[in-house]
Design a protein around this nucleic acid. Structure first.
Lengths: 348, 348
DNA sequence: ATTAGCACTCGGGTGTTAAGAGTGCTAAAA
DNA sequence: TTTTAGCACTCTTAACACCCGAGTGCTAAT
């Protein structure tokens, strides 16, 4: 009597077999056949039985055959069923946890560094590509601008946003940077730049400000240009891709790896993919992604929120055959940690 | 009588043919045969003549055949002869020049930005991988450190080196950052950190400093740790690789592209390759590079020097079949420009 | 010195075949 | 009714033979 009792319910043994197929395929990358499955898992049934079950899983759409005489591989539906129902979502591995902690320890206190470190660490850990989006949005305000002269004609400038992103650069003027210049610079900054959204500090806006400057226009211009350049680079931290070369090692993508890398290189579609995630941890398998270029990939998007309502994301992109079982706990742990640390860093 | 008069000298026509073969092969990527060469160049000799000449070029080692019945491709020696004697080293293209100028215009005044922009721009231009090394060395000193509180427990910290590299980060302490802390921080910085080589500000060194702090050890520690982190990241700017995914588009590297990317990902050998260059513009063709992984690649290393004796480099890495004729003027122009602009930025 | 002509070579493409892996089905056993 | 053993079948892959064409090297004629 324990058979598929409903359309959506699989018999225990089918579940077991599906889980084994998915896991074996994830491990080896080879289509798994009835015999191979038995010898690898030690199930105490015959290959014929497994074959029958697999056959049914096949017609139910959970498995598919690359060709008639090969083993089976999970279909998209199969992966989906696996991550939804079969995967033991175990706790994160203690060692992995240590690696993560150690990896981002040097960035504690600085949101931007936390974000990029987390991306790097996760890329190393998962051997997949990772994407991070900083909690930068419409309402990320310019919080502080400092300028420190380091020579007669040059100064270092630092810009801090309400989200804790810090950008700095040197800038150079044609005429001397004296107290007067600094004063009028801070005046402009105080009145027209601070507490404005970073996205609004465009070159055009700067132009209009500069036009209104009395007197030392030509000294002020490079300073204001530097401000706009810094404000602009805040936006750059929004979405960053890392570890994409990891994807080359997967034999899953044959020659198509190049096309994938090209796709990932473009900003807009990637932003789209990430931002279309709703939950706090979303898994998009294969063609669940709306972009054709991702049909053989899975994207795991995990969100964290910092004290405001701003949310950032960390994502992992890899072949559908990625190791969900270990990646998911890692990315979860990572996002929690980063969210906590950033919130902490932003406390007054 | 104009034949190969010496071992090292080729007849005019041989030179012409060699040049054509190299250029055609660079353009098409296909081995060039006698007929194809004539039809592509409009030479007024018969294919048989060309064949004879090619045959001799072959035995002299300038050309080689992938297989008997294919056309010829330049050997390493052929490329070498081409870049040394045959290539018209024309001026940089006006359009390219504009692109370069425009590309790095936003970075003027900031050495570090200049360096990374130049790398990016050159990667886009050449479609190859690019490597930049900043003029960071043993004698790059910490020139200035500023710390600006931005909240009760957090401050932004900025570090400037003698070479104009600026690094910044937020840092956070457990107890309040007050005037006293700041004062003792600056005391430590002034006495033990400023004007020291950045490379010497290691975590270990910081440890010994921190140990000697009286009183508020636990507040000072994160600040000093941040200093060491910043000093460390100065070293990171030393050698940076960019545009490596460009290499994937070259059909020259088939499956070996992956191995190449892996090689380029490692820091030490790459440093070795770049730093073994002696002249101001060095071209290493194929296995002239001492690393086996580069046997199908050429590396062009171009140096610039800034006012001191510090020199940085910009390099292009691509298949031996790269377009030397346009890449070389571009990289030359770029290094000159960057060298000039950095020197300018570093003037008092 | 150049060229036309020609035999030759070799890689790439196209069957064909044999081996191997894996399946689906059937009939017997539990 | 479920499981299992056996077997025929399918399909991929590797290996081999084959042909075609591009390109060569050589020779003889100009």
């Amino acid at each position: 009597m324990p058979e598929q009792t409903e359309k959506t319910e699989l018999s225990e043994r089918k579940k077991q077999i599906l889980a084994h197929v998915v896991e074996l395929y994830i491990k080896t990358g080879e289509p798994v056949g009835s015999k191979g499955l038995i010898s690898a898992t030690g199930m105490s049934v015959s290959s014929a039985t497994v074959r029958n079950e697999m056959n049914e899983l096949d017609s139910l759409g959970y498995l598919e055959q690359p060709h008639t005489s090969a083993g089976r591989i999970p279909s998209q539906k199969g992966y989906r069923y696996y991550v939804d129902h079969l995967m033991k979502n175990r706790e994160i591995d203690e060692l992995t946890k240590r690696l993560i902690d150690a990896g981002i320890s040097s960035a504690v206190g600085d949101p931007e560094k936390l974000i990029s470190k987390s991306r790097e660490v996760l890329a190393n850990l998962t051997k997949c590509a990772t994407v991070s989006t900083a909690p930068v949005g419409e309402m990320t305000l310019i919080r502080k601008i400092e300028i420190v002269p380091v020579g007669t004609y040059s100064a270092m400038m630092v810009l801090l946003t309400s989200n804790g992103i810090l950008k700095s650069r040197l800038c150079r003027t044609d005429s001397e940077i004296n107290a007067g210049i600094l004063e009028s610079f801070y005046n402009i900054v105080d009145s027209f730049i601070l507490e404005k959204p970073a996205l609004e500090i465009t070159p055009a806006y700067i132009q209009t400000l500069a036009a209104a400057v009395e007197g030392d226009y030509f000294t002020m211009l490079p300073l204001l240009a530097a401000v706009s350049e810094l404000a602009d680079s805040v936006g750059d931290s929004r979405l960053i891709l890392g570890g994409s070369s990891n994807l080359l090692s997967f034999k899953d993508y044959g020659a198509s790896a190049v096309a994938l890398l090209e796709f990932l290189g473009k900003r807009e579609p990637l932003t789209d993919v990430i931002s279309s995630s709703k939950g706090s941890l979303d898994i998009h398998i294969g063609s669940e992604n709306k972009y054709k270029q991702l049909e053989n990939s899975s994207v795991i998007v995990s969100k964290y929120s910092v004290k405001g309502d701003d949310t950032g994301t960390i994502s992992v992109i890899g072949p559908t055959r990625m190791d969900y079982e270990t990646i998911i706990p890692s990315i979860k742990y990572m996002t929690d940690l980063v969210g906590r640390l950033i919130s902490q860093a932003l406390e007054e």
